[in-house]
């Protein structure tokens, strides 16, 4: 049960942290706070016996923070004046989200209890470490992502490839002045 306590504790901190990050005025601290929330995720992965994920989450989090800080650049980019419209939207959104939360309680109660998954498919991988015996990879997560479900990983590499190509395209694009723009100016 000690895992439950830790996970609840870290999740609580993560929720407070994300509210703080979202409501934060200063952008750099908001980014850092979200980074800490991400590191909290990594810590929970450790408690949930997923060291692979903890490492990957930790490293990718650092990377994401670097990219985000790169976009942040200067504090005076982020001035914004409060408006009444925005307040109304905020109140309405909070009401709707709280309503969704109350509706979801039934569903969350009906889910299988925490710490007791049925594991019908993954029994095959785990029982007697069958996956390790079939692929000769001691790390069963690796044996799943690179052998049983290697096709998923090919897709994943493609996603990353697309993201890189897309980022480069977006940033490097050079536009000829078009006629329509000339007409506006």
């Amino acid at each position: 049960m000690i895992v439950d306590t830790w996970v609840i504790f870290i999740l609580g901190i993560m929720i407070i942290g994300s509210i703080a990050a979202i409501e934060q005025k200063e952008m750099l601290s908001a980014i850092i706070t979200v980074g800490i929330v991400g590191l909290g995720t990594s810590l929970i992965f450790l408690f949930l016996q997923a060291p692979d994920l903890a490492i990957v989450q930790f490293l990718f989090e650092i990377f994401a923070i670097i990219i985000l800080v790169r976009a942040f650049i200067k504090p005076d980019y982020h001035k914004s004046e409060p408006s009444i419209m925005n307040k109304i939207v905020t109140v309405l959104t909070v009401l709707v989200l709280v309503a969704i939360l109350f509706c979801s309680i039934d569903m969350l109660k009906a889910l299988p209890e925490f710490g007791n998954p049925s594991m019908e498919t993954s029994k095959y991988y785990v029982d007697n470490a069958n996956a390790a015996k079939e692929t000769h990879s001691a790390n069963i997560v690796t044996s799943i992502i690179l052998d049983y479900r290697a096709y998923d990983t090919l897709g994943e590499a493609t996603v990353l490839f697309t993201a890189i190509l897309g980022t480069i395209t977006i940033l490097r694009i050079k536009t000829k002045k078009r006629k329509s723009e000339e007409a506006i100016e």
Partner: peptide, 19 residues
Amino acid sequence: MVDPLPQALVLTSIVIELG
């Protein structure tokens, strides 16, 4: 052991998130 399949899936989705 804990269920390895969700871990494999999350590994994928973390990468997608960075993208």
